[in-house]
Design a protein around this nucleic acid. Structure first.
Lengths: 196, 196
DNA sequence: CTCTATAATGGCACTGAGTGTCATATTCTG
DNA sequence: CAGAATATGACACTCAGTGCCATTATAGAG
């Protein structure tokens, strides 16, 4: 730790705080863990904790934010010629891949969110800004003047609804793999919007 | 106030606190308003405020909860023979009617939520439990054993996505009436899920 | 290598949210 | 009217979050 550049050390400490927090949350629960304890487990002062994360909630919110960033990239990276529905498919696929990455600790985070109401709220606290972000990404590739309108907002909302249902279904054990759950949910979506 | 039964007075005080809070939020902003001020404006002590609302956030959360209850009723009250898509339509219609009722103060609440990030979070803090509630209502009318599965979760999520897009579109001025915005968004949804 | 500007840290004090407790007052029930 | 149940206000406490300052460590110029 002594032979590190400033930015390296900063990332190192930030990751250490995050890891310590998730472990404590998973262990004794979100509400039962104080900032003081997280700071201590990560080897920093309580005051310094707030120099890395704006709040205790922010720890979980950041998890959601990186998830949202992955989704946004997928939308932006989609070939121009794809239809909105195809972009949605690609975005759902990207979301599932993100959630499946081990360093994301999806299972642990879902468990923390299920055990504590406030943890779930913390995780979802950025959901509207994430939705806004996806909506503007959809608008940017479809609309001429990139104006966020009802269609882009709808696409963003439905995409997130599909991913939520996918992860819930996977966590509930209805599917063993995330991609499998995703295909199933997408299939349900199209069927429902058809005749019936 | 002296000649009131217990439960009447309780409702009266609760409504007074709510009204005072929304006015203060709309006036000086959500974050700039303290519980002390709300309590004072409503004529109760700070301690008593917490006997009516669990938190400052709870004020806005309750707004969302009654909205969710209206949606749930619509799902439960739908005739058995309706297809999922038709139930969704009926639910969206009910949601729009709820939002249009004057005592709900939809415009004021949307403005408060737009001005303050924490206000928006407070309003949406119950969104996952509302979504759960709608999912179980969908499951109850469709499934044999009322088990919440991927399809009911998807229906709940898409219904809320449609309503979010509807209210945003209406607030942005794309439509003068809420029902008009709702039809448009539903039309977009079906078109998108078709070929393209 | 040294000196200096900059950034990171810890400690302290403060505001505000939220909770437990108790003594008092008001309302309901018989 | 008397006793039980409930509502209230006051006080004290924990914890989240923030501003401020003194100290230490690092980066980069000379």
């Amino acid at each position: 730790m002594a032979e590190m550049r400033r930015d390296e050390k900063r990332k190192f400490v930030r990751d250490a705080i995050y890891a310590a927090a998730i472990d404590l949350f998973a262990d004794r629960g979100f509400d039962e863990t104080t900032v003081e304890e997280i700071a201590q487990a990560a080897g920093v002062s309580r005051r310094s904790f707030f120099r890395y994360y704006a709040s205790k909630d922010d720890l979980l919110a950041q998890t959601a934010v990186s998830y949202g960033a992955a989704l946004r990239s997928a939308i932006e990276g989609s070939p121009r010629e794809l239809s909105p529905l195809e972009v949605m498919r690609a975005t759902v696929r990207a979301g599932v891949e993100h959630a499946a990455a081990p360093e994301v600790r999806t299972r642990q985070v879902v468990e923390i969110a299920i055990r504590s109401e406030s943890a779930r709220q913390a995780y979802q606290s950025r959901s509207s800004s994430i939705e806004d972000s996806l909506a503007s990404a959809f608008a940017a590739r479809t609309k001429k003047r990139s104006a966020v309108d009802a269609e882009s907002r709808l696409l963003a909302g439905v995409t997130l609804a599909v991913l939520n249902a996918t992860i819930a279904s996977w966590f509930a054990g209805e599917h063993k793999s995330l991609p499998g759950a995703a295909s199933r949910v997408l299939q349900l979506l199209i069927k429902t919007m058809d005749g019936d």
